[in-house]
């Protein structure tokens, strides 16, 4: 193994922690705040050890009031800081919806361009850990509806490691959705991994017969499905959207133009979802490239159940992705 290609074994959680640590080291304006991020080390242990390293000024535990501490983050950002606000789960972020949607996203516009809000909000999203309907929803597609926000969904170690710094550099509010099922994902990452772009989708697996489009927690399942499809002779391309707002239309349309079929895998609900938006854009701009109707594999339209077998049944799973893709490709690729 050469020096340049040196890799380290790391988890998604640890990659995220490295990203926060690097930001705290590089920029004195950066601080982290949220519920239990300090003494407890973060609900998902992302910030474990940071309080000891950076002190209570920069790793701040907050009261249990999402609206209050997100609002404080907005104020700090307006005042010249670069806050990272952690919200425990996307479900709880709804308590701060007014701050996020009515303030963070609009102040630049409503102040006539006078105030940017360089705020980063991190939160956990997604199901699969038997945390029931209070903690398991995937509402990132909802936030992608809002002009003024950028919506990131890191699905790989590199993105977990690299998106935060780029988000902090952005002068406007950026929301980072970390799928809870990914924190324990472990793999090899370049030892010198650093900042990555946040405006391009990525082709995680090139293919020719069908484009499987996904993001966040379902990327792994989709890659697994692609491998299974390959064994059946179907060469699937996997597109990791990475950023849900703004969507990278060019990569999406380019992929469909090459494969002529698009299947969207989204842990969000189907109705009014980001998958619906992507489907509409493909229809609007690549209709005559389509060799089959755009299809979707989404979560069942129920609050995510607690019981294991029900939760599994409600979420997109590999067999459903494989089945949908095979139906679209038909008798042969």
């Amino acid at each position: 193994m050469s020096a340049q290609a040196k890799t380290v074994r790391i988890t998604y959680r640890e990659a995220m922690r490295q990203a926060i640590r690097e930001a705290l080291q590089r920029d004195p304006r950066v601080f982290l705040m949220g519920e239990d991020v300090g003494k407890y080390g973060g609900c998902y242990a992302v910030s474990k050890g940071l309080l000891e390293e950076f002190g209570p000024e920069r790793i701040r535990d907050t009261p249990l009031s999402e609206s209050a501490f997100v609002g404080a983050g907005i104020g700090a950002a307006m005042g010249g800081m670069r806050p990272i606000v952690e919200i425990m789960t996307v479900n709880f972020s709804l308590l701060a919806l007014d701050q996020i949607v009515n303030n963070a996203a609009t102040i630049l516009y409503m102040s006539g361009g006078q105030f940017n809000i360089p705020l980063v909000i991190r939160m956990t999203t997604g199901a699969g850990r038997q945390l029931a309907a209070q903690h398991s929803h995937s509402l990132e597609g909802w936030y992608a509806h809002i002009p003024g926000l950028k919506i990131l969904t890191p699905a790989t170690l590199e993105d977990a490691r690299g998106m935060l710094w780029t988000a902090l550099e952005d002068p406007d509010p950026v929301l980072i959705f970390e799928n809870g099922a990914l924190y324990n994902m472990e793999g090899e990452m370049a030892a010198d991994a650093g900042a990555v772009d946040i405006d391009k989708a990525a082709i995680r697996r090139p293919g020719t017969d069908i484009s499987l489009m996904t993001y966040g927690g379902t990327l792994g399942k989709t890659l697994e499905a692609a491998a299974e499809l390959a064994r059946a002779g179907v060469n699937a391309e996997v597109v990791d959207l990475r950023t849900l707002r703004p969507l990278d239309d060019a990569t999406i349309l380019d992929s469909v133009t090459r494969t002529h079929r698009a299947l969207i895998v989204d842990e969000g609900w189907r109705s009014g979802s980001i998958s619906a938006e992507i489907s509409a854009r493909i229809m609007e701009r690549a209709f005559y490239e389509l060799d089959a109707p755009v299809a979707r594999v989404c979560s069942a339209e129920v609050p995510i159940p607690y019981a294991k077998h029900l939760e599994d049944a409600a979420l997109p799973q590999v067999p459903a992705i494989v089945e949908a893709a095979r139906a679209m490709v038909g008798e042969h690729g």
Binding site: Y288, A292, G330, H332
Partner: peptide
């Protein structure tokens, strides 16, 4: 018939009414 297939049929001059479909 898929939009793509229709387009290709026009380009190739294929009478689609005689083509057997194997897709969805």
């Amino acid at each position: 018939i898929s939009p793509l297939a229709m387009r290709v049929a026009l380009e190739l001059g294929v009478d689609v009414s005689k083509v057997k479909g194997t897709g969805l």
